[in-house]
């Protein structure tokens, strides 16, 4: 029995660990460090219809145990992703989750329809939560009716299951999640980054050229855990959790909160080997805690009658 294997809509994962969108490019850079086939899946950088340059630099700023980014959805555009990036990824035995974005509903639909037909794309991740672009992105992620409408339109055209990536920058994330579930989403991914700002004390001006940026890294983990804890109890579709994951223990915490798989973002920048390291450490941790299969852990923090965790050590 593979105690790490997880079945999700469209995704038969050999393990529940995948790099988060935007933190792994299209895989090429990290293929210098290890065989990408060890990963459960790969969430590729947000793809839009046309190539985008994104925001001016500086695009990153450090914060206590975290970082702000304002990349602005830079990507080579749909045609190039289809012609170069996805075919290159086919050499690896790993399902791709295509993160897609747009400025209009039509753009999302067009990208979704085309990219969902690529042979190694097993699911879409609808990025309705990017805080760093003026048009689109987060605009679709803050009003439940708009998010639901977009989900419906994308579901109509996509040939693979659709996961919707939730923004934490909302007052009621549960209402959002429910609206998206009702619109037919196959799963949720959460959380995207939180809008923040840093100001340079020497110049008195924001450090990021964009002013604001999205906060990620260990600093956001408790927020991600809380939101997954709330949302997983309110919906019945699976959640891929993310936000500050660095270790196998973090992964377990996300499962206990209600996640069924976990993505690792910022931690790749600090340790390029973080994903394979977590994958190797998970079975050891499961042994220590007397857990037979990782999936038993989903929602343990709130499930009534769930077995108490036995600590053998």
């Amino acid at each position: 029995m593979n105690r790490l294997a997880v079945e999700l809509p469209g995704l038969s994962l050999k393990n529940p660990i995948m790099p988060a969108s935007g933190c792994f490019g299209f895989g090429r850079e990290y293929a210098q460090f290890y065989d990408l086939s060890v990963l459960g899946a790969i969430m590729i950088k947000a793809t839009t219809k046309e190539p985008r340059f994104g925001n001016s630099t500086p695009r990153v700023a450090e914060t206590p145990s975290g970082m702000l980014n304002a990349i602005g959805l830079q990507n080579p555009g749909l045609d190039k992703v289809l012609a170069e990036e996805l075919p290159w990824l086919e050499q690896f035995d790993v399902p791709i989750i295509a993160n897609i974005a747009g400025s209009t509903m039509e753009e999302y639909v067009e990208v979704a329809e085309t990219i969902s037909k690529a042979p190694n794309v097993h699911a879409l991740e609808l990025n309705i939560s990017c805080p760093n672009v003026k048009k689109g992105g987060i605009a679709f992620g803050t009003v439940p009716e708009v998010a639901a409408e977009l989900t419906r339109l994308v579901k109509e055209v996509s040939v693979v299951p659709v996961y919707v990536k939730l923004s934490p920058n909302v007052t009621d994330i549960v209402a959002m999640a429910k609206a998206i579930e009702q619109a037919g989403a196959d799963g949720l991914t959460m959380i995207n980054t939180l809008v923040g700002m840093r100001i340079d004390v020497k110049t008195g001006r924001p450090i990021l050229a964009n002013g604001t940026g999205g906060l990620s890294g260990p600093a956001v983990k408790p927020i991600a855990i809380r939101m997954i804890y709330e949302v997983s109890q309110a919906v019945s579709i699976p959640i891929i959790g993310m936000g500050g994951v660095q270790t196998a223990e973090d992964v377990l915490e996300f499962f206990y909160a209600g996640a069924s798989a976990v993505a690792v973002g910022t931690a790749n920048f600090i340790d390029p080997f973080v994903c394979p390291t977590i994958i190797n450490e998970l079975p050891v941790l499961l042994d220590e805690l007397g857990i037979r299969h990782i999936s038993e852990c989903t929602g343990r923090s709130w499930k009534t009658g769930a077995h108490a965790v036995h600590c053998r050590s």
């Binding site: 935007g22 933190c23 792994f24 490019g25 090429r28 850079e29 990290y30 210098q32 950088k45 340059f53 994104g54 630099t57 500086p58 695009r59 990153v60 700023a61 970082m67 980014n69 990349i71 830079q74 910022t266 790749n268 920048f269 390029p272």
Partner: peptide, 15 residues
């Protein structure tokens, strides 16, 4: 340029 990954994956350092 200010960097994230340093290896070309995050698009922080483009010109």
């Amino acid at each position: 340029e200010r960097m994230g990954c340093g290896v070309g994956a995050c698009f922080a350092c483009v010109c």
